[in-house]
Computed example of a mutant assay.
Amino acid sequence: MSTRNRTVTDTFTLLRRNLRHTIRYPSMTIGSVFGPVIMLLLFVGVLGKTLGRGLATASGAHASDYIGYIAPGIIITAVASGSMATAVAVCVDMTEGIVDRFRTMPISRVAILAAHVINSVLTTVVSTGSVIAVAILLGFRPHASVGQWLAAGGLLLALSIALTWLAVAMGLVSATPEAASNSPMLIVFLPFVGSAFAPASSMPAGVRQFAEYQPFTPAIESVRALLTGGPVGHHATLALGWCLVLGATGYAWAVAAFAKPRAH
């Protein structure tokens, strides 16, 4: 069997293992999937009228359009939230000794990490799908063509893979699962200091510049434009550039951390 075929086989074997763990211990996964849905219900059902009036004042949009504005932001938040469960799962494997056992077996080293990445991406797909379904029930009406849906899905997939590799690296360098659960908090928090819930132009100076140039705002604006039929502009290029930078950084960091002997 060639090295490439062995890597693919090992990846899917370990993916089945990770999926079984996800089913048997679903608490983190449930939080990743339903947390963004609860957030959507809160911002639309409880705070929607007030925030919608604020959006109308800031951008000239109608107050009832807030669901169309916030739904793409919550979708991106769902992608970011999946990183926490990934970091914890990787750290648990590293601290419980199973990875040390894997190292003594003829298993592809990349497959051990890639299985976690694929498992996380599958969970993120379920999470974002749940957010979109609930948003439509709440009144979100996308005006996207099939091509725009595919483009939005491709961007979300690229962002999910990039953030997952970062989360894998954070899990590898964390001393305990508790520390691993805290490491990705910056990733989860960043969409809130972007254009997910309010236009960056409405923010104070300093915060506005940070919101405009941080990684999540171009992704949010791209998905928002694609799903609502607006102009994407340069946001898609910036978003894909950030995905490439974050993904390459996370992958290099994860591979280096995995190769380094872990202190016990």
Rank of each mutant, 00 (worst) to 15 (best):
L19M: 08
L244C: 06
G129C: 02
T237N: 02
M170Q: 11
L172T: 04
G241C: 03
S145H: 00
R141M: 10
A162F: 07
T86I: 02
H21W: 11
V245P: 00
I161Y: 10
T95Q: 08
L238A: 11
V173Q: 10
A205L: 07
A252S: 14
V131W: 07
A205K: 12
D100V: 02
D10N: 04
L244D: 04
V193C: 04
V46A: 03
A198P: 07
I161H: 07
G45V: 00
P261N: 11
S130Y: 07
Y69A: 11
H264W: 10
C243E: 05
S127T: 05
R20Y: 14
A239R: 06
P204R: 10
A111C: 05
S181Y: 12
S127Q: 03
A169H: 05
S81Y: 14
A239N: 02
R17N: 09
L122H: 08
L41W: 09
T228M: 05
R224M: 10
I75K: 11
G45M: 01
A158N: 02
T50F: 09
G153L: 03
T22A: 15
L163S: 08
V134E: 02
L138R: 03
L156R: 10
V245W: 02
R101K: 14
I161R: 11
V88W: 00
F34E: 12
A225P: 03
V44W: 02
G68S: 15
Q214S: 07
A89Q: 09
T13E: 04
S202T: 11
E212L: 15
Y25H: 13
A158R: 06
T164H: 01
E212Q: 15
L40M: 03
